[in-house]
């Protein structure tokens, strides 16, 4: 037994509230690993991902949920994120082992913080900070986009009709939470 132990203190741990009928919370133990497809090795990488997850990478700007619950988000031609629930700080090893060297993996778990929003007023609140059109005809369930909200880079995912997952840099977590919280507070419930 080591003399010292380290306790995890995720920046938004425990954040949970309901404003304007929208539930806002920081999902616990959300792990995130980036998947970069080697130049010239794209086919092998895509095959490895399909073999590991039972799902191929979706097209750019879309996400797909694999059998094991991992959400694969395609950000660009050669970059995707794998999001999954995993508490221990070895997410990258877990993914790398499954992909067998066919993909360059980087642990992004601690780079980001996540906020989940759920409720019919969510879109109305996000109008205050999100420049992207979130209308269902344009940004349907499983769509994903990186954009900027209140000067913060944000990856936004639509996970359900009234459900969104927002990811932003962990160092500015408080500003991020503030931005989302204020947006909910500022909604006129009419």
């Amino acid at each position: 037994m080591a003399e010292y132990t380290l306790q995890a203190e995720p920046p938004l741990a425990g954040a949970e509230m309901e404003i304007a009928g929208v539930r806002l919370w920081a999902p616990a133990d959300l792990a995130l690993v980036s998947l970069a497809l080697p130049l010239g090795g794209e086919d092998a990488a895509l095959m490895a991902i399909r073999a590991a997850y039972g799902a191929g990478l979706p097209e750019i700007g879309r996400s797909v949920v694999a059998d094991d619950g991992t959400r694969l988000v395609r950000l660009s031609a050669d970059l995707a994120f794998a999001l999954f629930t995993h508490a221990t700080p070895d997410a990258e090893h877990v993914v790398a082992d499954r992909l067998n060297g066919a993909v360059y993996t980087t642990d992004q778990t601690d780079v980001w913080v996540a906020l989940a929003l759920s409720g019919p007023n969510t879109r109305r609140a996000l109008e205050r900070i999100c420049p992207i059109d979130l209308h269902r005809q344009v940004f349907a369930v499983d769509h994903a986009a990186r954009t900027v909200m209140e000067h913060l880079g944000v990856l936004i995912l639509r996970t359900g009709e009234d459900d969104y997952l927002l990811l932003s840099a962990s160092s500015s977590a408080k500003s991020f939470l503030h931005a989302v919280e204020v947006s909910l507070t500022n909604v006129n419930q009419t």
Binding site: S34, P38, L39, G41, L79, Q108
Partner: peptide, 14 residues
Amino acid sequence: PDLDVHLISTTDGW
């Protein structure tokens, strides 16, 4: 453009 190089920021991660 044909170098096999991939970049990702990990500033906040460590």
